[in-house]
């Protein structure tokens, strides 16, 4: 306690106040921050293009029977119509994202044409803990979402469950599992709402 009260004026006298101590960090933070903003602005279109081509590649896996995807905006929301070879609507693929344990999780959610069943989910980008949370991207865990009804929001269960709207959480990665569940529920709800509004108006 005594140490602290003595140390504070000491630092101020030596280094010319808190600004004198921290000016280098403030200047560096500004420089680096603007540098990163420039990098982000230059590379973002390329990264977005990479994600788009991966999305189109995944659509046949996410919606059974579909071969291509058609990008469109329904009520301001970006969705992909999953079409078969003859151009019939087989289902929908919705890009969705939310906060995970470490960083934003970006996902694709596949739904059948009537929005009654989830036909598959896919993780586009995640930075979850290696070995625990990053297993959300593994097919073995993602596949349990296939065939889940959308009548009720999904819920997590800690063990295998026969209840239709239950999905099993990953051991040691409850927050990551929770995030994926919330992203999927949110995506389903927002697509339902957007399509209802679009057909209503």
């Amino acid at each position: 306690m005594n140490e602290q009260t003595k140390a504070a004026p000491e630092i101020r006298r030596k280094g010319g106040g808190y600004l004198g101590q921290a000016w280098l960090i403030l200047v560096l933070a500004l420089l680096f921050g603007s540098g990163l903003a420039a990098v982000q602005m230059a590379l973002e279109p390329i990264i977005a293009r990479n994600k788009l081509s991966e999305t189109l590649l995944q659509i046949p896996n996410l919606v059974p029977g579909s071969e291509t995807g058609e990008q469109e905006r329904v009520n301001g929301q970006l969705v992909f119509r999953a079409l078969d070879a003859d151009g019939n609507l087989m289902g929908w693929v919705l890009p969705a994202s939310g906060q995970g344990f470490a960083d934003k999780i970006e996902m694709l959610v596949g739904l059948d044409a009537a929005l009654e069943t989830i036909t598959g989910i896919y993780v586009l980008d995640q930075k979850e803990t290696p070995g625990l949370g990053n297993r959300i991207a593994e097919a073995g865990w993602r596949d349990q979402f296939r065939g889940k009804p959308t009548s009720k929001p999904l819920e997590l269960s800690s063990a295998e469950s026969s209840i239709p709207h239950h999905v099993e959480a990953l051991t040691g990665a409850t927050i990551s599992s929770e995030s994926v569940k919330d992203i999927v529920n949110g995506a389903v709800a927002s697509l339902k709402e957007a399509l209802a509004k679009a057909s209503g108006s």
Partner: peptide
């Protein structure tokens, strides 16, 4: 601060030009 800046640049460049590798390395 310095290291984090350059790591972020490396991460973005990989995501833009080596997308598959960037996904494979993920959080590393």
């Amino acid at each position: 601060l310095t290291i984090a800046t350059f790591v972020t640049i490396a991460d973005r460049v990989l995501a833009a030009y080596m997308y598959d590798m960037s996904k494979q390395l993920g959080p590393y």
